[in-house]
Amino acid sequence: MNSQELLELKKAACNVRLWTIEGVYNAKSGHPGGSLSAADIITYLYFKEMNVDPKNPKDPGRDRFVLSKGHCCPALYAALALKGFFPTEEIKSLRHIGAMLQGHPDMKHTPGVDMSSGSLGQGVSAACGMALAGKYDGADYRVYALLGDGECEEGQVWEAAMFASHNKLDNLCIIVDLNGLQIDGHVNDVAGLEPLDTKFEAFGFEVIKIDGNDFEQIESALEKAKTVKGKPTAIIAATIKGKGVSYMENQVGWHGKAPNTEEYEQAMAELRAQLKALEA
């Protein structure tokens, strides 16, 4: 990508983060930490990579995205709204009674959401089904699934991984948001996830390790994934949980907590300053 494209992506990601905080603050609950760590990946997918049309969100030929770590939907909702799937105003009623935007993604009611999710470990299986349907139909769309590193503790992730490589789903690319933290603490203190790369390799995946908060690395990984034939790709994206809001970064406490008014104002001020710097 050229420097202008990179700048635009950085600005888009900043806006995704601003609306993420807006949503979680207004909801008085939700999951800012993992939303912010994944914001760059989600931004890249929706603003650069995926073939999706806000005017035709159910286009059968579209690329698919499954947010397996469904609790990070504030970032997905922000990206979808900024992309034009629905008005950004909807974000202010996230998690409210009667709201379109549920606490976890609801494909029945939210335009642009390809799969309902939230119960961890289930999204990769659904993504496998979508990729399998694409193969069956001879369609050329690609399927992306974003999961958490803690989520990889769910056995179903590995059932799905076996299925994906057995069925040679090279139209499937899963991305692990390796932010290192889960509710009970550091992922490797809780459940000993590593080595994750060789696990996925052993399950038949092409594995690419990147910095998941770096757009150029995200781009090169996704481009490389498209050239892999006969097997699925797993991108292990090291990220910073809470990225972009100083007091949330690498703090396990911000996994599933909304900022109070003072914290909200600080977060918004920091993100607006980052955006202003990019626009300067």
């Binding site: 799969m115 059932e159 057995h166």
Partner: peptide
């Protein structure tokens, strides 16, 4: 048109969901 998921019923149901989401 037949897909054996092996001994992984949870995954099978998820794969079925993904297939259905794509019109199968």
């Amino acid at each position: 048109r037949f897909f054996d998921c092996g001994i992984s019923e949870g995954n099978m149901i998820g794969v079925a969901a993904g297939l259905a989401a794509c019109g199968k």
